[in-house]
Design a binder for these strands. Structure first.
Length: 272
DNA sequence: GATGCGTGGCT
DNA sequence: TAGCCAAGCAT
């Protein structure tokens, strides 16, 4: 849930999930669509699908217990190098090189003297992080947590709070006069993209209790002569995007391909 | 290595 | 207010 999503937005959903599915087996015992539905508006709903798949893998291959090694964690769906290291370190106390966006930014500034880390995680960054990690297990966990928090709370991407930083006297970027970034990060396009349409379609499917006919996506409900049950609001939002028919087709096809939707009785629904 | 993939708070 | 950006991953 925390992948690319701020902590404060994750917390309420996380609590709901743990109450509803206290164990991996509990989640694995329900349809994947239920995971997507209860994902709410966290974004990137593929993560819900993969979390469900990970729960199934944990149930089947790990006797229902979340594995405690980096390698086993990495093999789970939706778990990459960051998440595998973070779980091994923070849940199991292991010494792992945890590198998230916060840690990358702190290292870039404090050590490398640049305003921002490289556009993508590099081998050099991993080597640097590994070289800074304390040798013993417990201190390494504290180090990972501390650097991550420093980045999240003080050494932020925009308007870093250098005045409150406990290590500002060690900061290479500050010592260099806070030079501007050497490149301009290109923002993620949104308006008019397939991505926006996909999001609007999934919003409809989340609320739908019956398969949604393709015509519902392509035409105004008023033109169809019948009222959609319970999905009027997200459907209206989708139509307001006024996307081209082929764009809608791409979005629907993409959702099918990703397993976020399936065809049933001539309509689209979340995977049952 | 580059791209596609959500959503909403903050400035 | 339009854009930035957030505990990344898979392909």
């Amino acid at each position: 849930m925390l992948q690319q999503t701020p902590v404060v937005r994750v917390l309420p959903v996380w609590h709901e999930w743990l109450e509803r599915w206290p164990t991996p087996a509990g989640l694995a015992g329900e349809p994947a669509g239920e995971a997507v539905r209860s994902w709410g508006r966290l974004g990137y709903p593929r993560r819900a699908l993969r979390l469900h798949a990970a729960a199934a893998a944990i149930t089947e291959k790990h006797k229902g217990k979340v594995p405690d090694t980096y390698t086993e964690l990495l093999a789970l769906p939706g778990v990459g190098s960051y998440t595998a290291a973070a779980v091994a370190a923070f849940a199991y106390g292991r010494r792992e090189t945890v590198v998230d966006t916060n840690i990358r930014r702190v290292h870039a500034r404090l050590v490398s003297g640049t305003a921002l880390p490289a556009p993508a995680l590099t081998a050099a960054e991993m080597r640097l992080a590994a070289s800074l990690l304390p040798a013993a297990d417990a201190p390494s966990v504290r180090w990972n947590a501390a650097v991550m928090e420093l980045g999240a709370l003080l050494c932020t991407a925009r308007a870093p709070k250098c005045g409150a930083c406990p290590v500002n006297d060690l900061c290479a970027w500050r010592a260099a006069g806070e030079p501007p970034p050497s490149y301009i990060p290109k923002g993620q396009a949104w308006h008019g993209t397939d991505r926006q349409v996909r999001g609007a379609v999934v919003a409809v499917l989340r609320l739908a209790e019956e398969p949604v006919p393709a015509e519902m996506f392509h035409h105004e409900p008023a033109d169809l002569g019948f009222a959609p049950a319970g999905i009027g609001v997200p459907l209206a939002a989708l139509h307001r995007l006024n996307s081209a028919p082929e764009q809608l087709e791409r979005a629907l096809a993409g959702l099918l391909a990703d397993g976020l939707a399936e065809l049933h009785d001539g309509g689209y629904r979340l995977p049952a």
